[in-house]
Simulated scan of single mutants.
Amino acid sequence: MKTLVMLASAGLIGGAMNALAGGGSFVTLPALIAAGLPSVAANASSTAALFPGGVTSAWVYRGGLTTVDGLPFAPSLVVTLLGGLCGALLLVWTPTTLFDRVLPFLLLAATITLMLGPRLGSRVRSRVAVGRTTVLGVQFVLGTYGGYFGGGVGLMMLAAWSLFTAADIKALNPARMVMVTAANMVAVVCFALLGMVWWRQSVALGLGAMAGGYLGAHLGKRLPARLVRAVMLVIAITMTVLFFRRAFLTT
């Protein structure tokens, strides 16, 4: 019972983080490993557990799903689904050891892009013609990453989108939530069909994530864009440092 309560609490925090800024899997994945799950099963179970919270947040954000300049929403959703499928299959077929080493550098790149996003984005848009093919190609890669592991994928999406559009982070949050949830949905179906999800632990985590996703989405709608960006940067920096420590300093 103590383990289930711990998992529900981790789900509450992770769901709220995902709704507000992203990075909830950094809370839920260690919680599942602490509950005794092997790392690959914990990864799959974390994705399954956070999915209901993502759906809840996407529903709360549904009123903000307007067309964002520079982001073709419907085609981006399609390639995100395809990427999520590829990423999920990649997790099934390949070991995660190498990816554990690469992940901190991906998070570092996302953090730097978030820091420099508005300034760097305006310069990129003024000097380089970013076409539809480029946007969709980047989104496919992000969808693949989301299906494979997904840690910080929401932050990475916002970092990439800041190079394509001048819209602020708060305006992009609804689209981000839908894209992340779409990639997770495909991955969850694959993991469930292949028996990779530990359902008892996932249900406890998922119930907390649904509550956290609902509360976090309502909070995100009311907070100023500058504060949301600041929170995201704190989460991104913290995740990057901790993932470097996990990859290179722990034995």
Rank of each mutant, 00 (worst) to 15 (best):
T56G: 15
M179T: 08
V5D: 06
S39R: 12
G70R: 02
I33R: 08
L81P: 11
G22L: 11
M157C: 05
M232L: 09
G195N: 01
V60M: 06
Y148M: 07
V55E: 15
M1I: 10
G143A: 03
G53W: 14
L89V: 00
Q139H: 04
L120W: 08
L215E: 01
L215V: 15
R123Q: 11
R176P: 03
L223S: 00
S76H: 00
M156L: 11
G15V: 11
L89R: 05
T96K: 05
G54E: 15
A230G: 06
G54A: 12
L215T: 12
A16D: 06
M179K: 07
V40H: 11
P104A: 09
M179D: 07
V153M: 11
G208M: 02
C190F: 02
V234N: 05
L242R: 09
V27S: 04
A166S: 12
A247V: 08
W199C: 03
G147F: 03
L142A: 02
S126A: 15
I33E: 13
G23T: 10
Y61V: 03
I112M: 14
Y214V: 11
L4W: 10
L233A: 06
N18V: 12
V178F: 02
A204Q: 04
L82I: 15
A204D: 06
M185L: 15
R176W: 02
V234A: 10
F191A: 00
L81A: 14
G143Q: 13
R246Q: 15
A183I: 14
G208C: 07
W199T: 07
Y214W: 15
T240E: 13
L205C: 12
V92S: 00
V203C: 04
L98K: 04
P75Y: 06
T67D: 13
A109W: 13
M185A: 15
G64T: 04
T251Y: 13
L242N: 12
S25I: 06
G14F: 07
G24N: 09
V79C: 07
A49C: 13
S9L: 15
G208N: 09
M156G: 03
L98Q: 08
Y214L: 15
V189E: 04
G150F: 05
M17G: 01
G15T: 06
T3H: 08
V189T: 12
L77I: 01
M156P: 01
L7K: 04
R101S: 08
V135D: 05
G220C: 07
R101I: 04
G151M: 13
M239G: 09
A19D: 09
W59I: 14
L172P: 03
G137P: 08
M115L: 15
A204T: 03
L91P: 00
L249K: 00
F105H: 05
P75F: 03
I13S: 11
A183M: 10
I237M: 13
V79W: 07
P95D: 10
R176E: 03
A31H: 01
F73T: 05
V78Q: 10
M179A: 12
V138H: 01
G36L: 11
V188Y: 04
V234D: 01
A187H: 07
A19L: 03
R132I: 11
G22D: 10
A49G: 13
D100F: 02
A175S: 07
M239H: 04
T97H: 04
G208A: 05
T28M: 06
T3F: 00
R226G: 02
A183N: 13
F105I: 11
A192T: 13
M185E: 06
V231W: 00
R119I: 02
I13P: 04
Y214A: 14
P95Q: 02
